[in-house]
């Protein structure tokens, strides 16, 4: 079965802007889900609020589009009440790291059996491009008109520190690798976290000299660095550019799982 069969065809095209990377990540996630062989009746897609969180509305399966930041808490309830259901959570950087930060670390700590895909576009897209906890230092947004001054969250590192069983980061340029990472996440029991850097040409790129969608994809292509190479460079004491996106699989382990199949 092709991933296209998972879409609600009557809902397309999506509401996403021209060149938005969210659609790409949904494609990859649905490919991974169909590769794993899950049936529609056993998967529930959950999301919070934001651009990324519109994803479940386009998927022909049970889906819960919840309140801002709370997707993981809702998903925890679903999984614990019926462990036979498979949980896939779509979330964004603002949804997960800002308003939902507490639910995020606690879901990692509990190691609830679910797969969380965070579409990190480094901005609040739905509300028109405000700074988020992952907006890089110096980047312009409507609420950081003189450049972001705050530090950022490394979401993947955060999930590992909080106890997730699987963590990986890829970008919307690396569609095959992202699909494989999501598949590995789906197959790993416990909390699996996949961070997907996605382009937001409208909210982020437009203000940060990456106006066209292909500019942002080109940025992902040239600024991504495999984790192994990054670690090696660090060990050798070499300089790594600060805007490098370190990609790859970061952790895969077997901590005790909450909400596994009974």
């Amino acid at each position: 079965m092709n991933f296209m069969d998972w879409y609600r065809a009557d809902r397309l095209p999506t509401i996403f802007c021209v060149g938005c990377g969210n659609g790409t990540v949904i494609n990859c996630a649905l490919t991974a889900v169909s590769e794993v062989g899950w049936k529609r009746e056993e998967v529930v897609f959950v999301s919070g609020i934001g651009c990324s969180s519109r994803a479940p509305g386009y998927i022909d399966a049970d889906s819960l589009h919840t309140t801002h930041g709370r997707a993981l808490a809702f998903a925890t309830g679903i999984k614990l009440a019926n462990p036979d259901l498979q949980l896939v959570v779509f979330t964004g950087d603002g949804d997960l790291a800002a308003i939902g930060g507490n639910h995020f670390i606690h879901a990692c700590r509990r190691n609830v059996d679910m797969t969380v895909i965070c579409m990190n576009n480094q901005i609040y897209g739905m509300t028109g491009g405000q700074g988020s906890p992952t907006t890089p230092r110096g980047a312009l947004s409507t609420t950081t008109p003189y450049g972001a001054e705050e530090g950022t969250f490394d979401l993947t590192a955060l999930s590992i520190a909080a106890g997730a069983n699987f963590a990986a980061r890829w970008t919307s340029y690396h569609v095959k690798e992202l699909t494989n990472a999501i598949r590995a996440g789906l197959e790993t029991p416990g909390f699996s976290f996949i961070e997907a850097a996605v382009q937001c040409p409208t909210g982020y790129g437009r203000r940060n000299r990456l106006r066209e969608p292909e500019d942002m994809i080109e940025f992902f292509r040239t600024h991504s660095m495999l984790r192994q190479k990054y670690d090696r460079l660090l060990a050798e004491g070499k300089l790594v550019p600060p805007d490098t996106i370190v990609v790859g699989e970061f952790v895969r382990r077997d901590r005790p799982v909450l909400g596994g199949k009974k």
Partner: peptide, 26 residues
């Protein structure tokens, strides 16, 4: 049945709503 102590009341009601949608009384 399932008991879970969530991280706050926001999470509690969220988990309860999620559980209710699986068809259990929550």
């Amino acid at each position: 049945g399932t008991f879970i102590q969530m991280e706050d009341e926001i999470g509690s009601i969220a988990a309860v709503i999620g559980a209710a949608w699986t068809g259990v009384r929550a």
